[in-house]
Write a protein that binds this DNA or RNA. Sequence first.
DNA 1: AGGATTTGACCGAT
DNA 2: ATCGGTCAAATCCT
Length: 271
Amino acid sequence: MATTDHKPRINKIKAIKELVEGQECASKLQFLLHNPSQQHASASVGEDLVLKILKSFSQTLSVLSSSDSESFMEASANSPDDSPSDESSESRKRAPPKDRRGCYKRKRNAQTWTVVSPTTEDGHAWRKYGQKAILNSKHPRSYFRCTRKYDQGCGATKQVQRKEDDPQMYQTTYIGVHTCKETGKAPPIVPDSSSWDWEPINPPKQQEPEDPAVMWKDLAMGFGSSDAAIKMGDIDDEVSCKSLEMDSMVRSAGFYSNFHFDESDEFPQGL
DNA sequence: AGGATTTGACCGAT
DNA sequence: ATCGGTCAAATCCT
């Protein structure tokens, strides 16, 4: 279980690399937006940049949290997989319950971080597996897992809920890191420019999205600005994270993030 | 037909 | 007992 000493350093380098890439993409995007004449010709380029930026966030978070996530990955790798008593149901009523005691575990110590954004899109492929009404919340919470959970044992999940005070915004809590590889099938769910939309889980049909250019610009500026802020801790307890509180917000057109990690991993202070 | 979503039940934590 | 997270059958969608 002991992790090597140099691993945090390697992760730090990787994280910085990811952030630099994201920053470069943001700069390109900004340039694109400052040159409207090129903008129409390169709409897909802009989308691509946005995707890259989002992925940069995701990858960075994965890298930063990977060094103390082995146990989590192991836990998620051996899925419950109860033996399927495959009987075609004879009625619409729920079949007699199987004994599901101990059939799943909660990821109490998984890394979590929260992102608030007008879109739930993040470049990963997710599969919805549940929705719950939450006490004192007007909006239900939706539960997603990585589509490669069984494919590659990826244990990443996320929870999406509309913001109470701003229903246009979605608060997405990511739990666990992606251990899957994105290569090959099931590409990210970002559509081409003709069908780009910023819509949520249950999108109202044909709602006109905001001008993507404005949002890209905001995103680019938010990413590029040095006061981008990340807050880390653990969602499960009130233990404030000892490692780091980069308590600035990526605040641009409502984009901001609130990242939660637990204190078990050393976080580079110099980022 | 096969994959994705919906939704009520089950289960662990508090 | 209650709440929130997950499971899995039923249903929907492509």
